[in-house]
């Protein structure tokens, strides 16, 4: 893998996340055996970067993110955030889950302040102020006293993102956060996410099944191989200028999309998930 070389060639920013030889096994009760999910994942993510992760379904993307968050135990290898080894969840990382997973018994504002309440670092007044600011950041001013079930899917995912940002993490982990949204809302949310991240100045890992979403959002796209997963390739997204909805119309955008699609297709074919050709 020329992975390290590539990074050094064009990027002098500090390494925010570094994963080395991450191996994860799960006990499978049906076959009474350990199932190897990740088999030596090496990855560096630089400060301020948005790295997208794509790969065949079930290859271990969520598992990897769980390991970075400290929720999933590794069998071997090491994950460091700001050079500190990860062994449990911490305030320097926050996860945005696929299902919006907001607490239905908490108002929007109190969902956002959840992490801060657990930390008991700030007074309740400070927590409220901070949550209110975040509410504004994600464009939901005035909805603080609503309950999640009173919001649309797109609004709920904004709250979900705000909840993760509340504890001011260094690293934002997003596991298919827009998967449940309709195509239109999804495109809109992609633009919004970029704005939010730019304003909040965060490093982010973003899992998605949607290749156009990965290319649109990411500085680089990591393609996972089929299970047991390693990093098959890292694709630099060298799109000029600001990302807007027009970006998706550029020929370069299509090229990148196709290249990533071919990489995933290769994996799928290699493992027999695909037999005939599938159009992009």
């Amino acid at each position: 893998m020329p992975l390290d070389m590539m990074d050094k060639a064009h990027d002098a920013r500090a390494v925010k996340l570094s994963a080395r030889g991450v191996r994860i096994d799960f006990w499978n009760d049906r076959i009474k055996r350990n199932l190897r999910v990740l088999d030596g994942v090496d990855l560096d993510v630089r400060e301020g970067e948005l790295l997208a992760i794509v790969g065949p379904s079930g290859c271990g993307k969520s598992t990897f993110l769980g390991a970075v968050d400290g929720l999933v135990k590794m069998r071997a290898g090491e994950i460091r955030v700001d050079d500190v080894p990860v062994d449990k969840p911490g305030a320097d990382r926050a996860m945005v889950f696929q299902q919006d997973s907001l607490f239905p018994w908490r108002t929007v504002l109190r969902n956002i302040s959840y992490g801060l309440e657990l930390q008991r670092r700030l007074s309740s007044g400070e927590i409220r102020d901070r949550a209110t600011n975040l509410l504004e950041l994600v464009g939901l001013k005035g909805f603080g006293e609503h309950y999640p079930h009173e919001l649309s899917g797109g609004m709920r995912q904004r709250v979900n993102i705000a909840r993760a940002l509340a504890t001011d993490p260094e690293l934002l982990l997003l596991d298919e956060p827009f998967a449940a949204l309709d195509a239109q809302t999804r495109e809109f949310m992609q633009v919004e996410l970029l704005k939010i991240l730019a304003r909040a100045k965060k490093t982010a890992l973003f899992i998605t099944h949607q290749i156009d979403e990965a290319v649109f959002l990411a500085d680089r796209v990591a393609v996972f191989s089929a299970r047991p997963a390693r990093i098959k390739a890292i694709v630099d997204v060298d799109l000029p200028g600001q990302r807007t909805l027009e970006t998706k119309l550029q020929p370069r955008f299509r090229d990148l999309q196709e290249r990533i699609w071919r990489l995933i297709e290769e994996e799928a074919e290699r493992t027999g998930l695909l037999t005939s050709t599938v159009g992009a």
Partner: peptide, 27 residues
């Protein structure tokens, strides 16, 4: 289980998990 994962992800202790997730969701 999603709620438990969220709480854990935010670093909830056993006691906090209990008070902020188990209790309200069993109301």
């Amino acid at each position: 289980r999603d709620f438990i994962k969220v709480a854990r992800s935010f670093g909830a202790s056993d006691g906090q998990l209990f008070a902020t997730v188990a209790l309200p969701s069993s109301v």
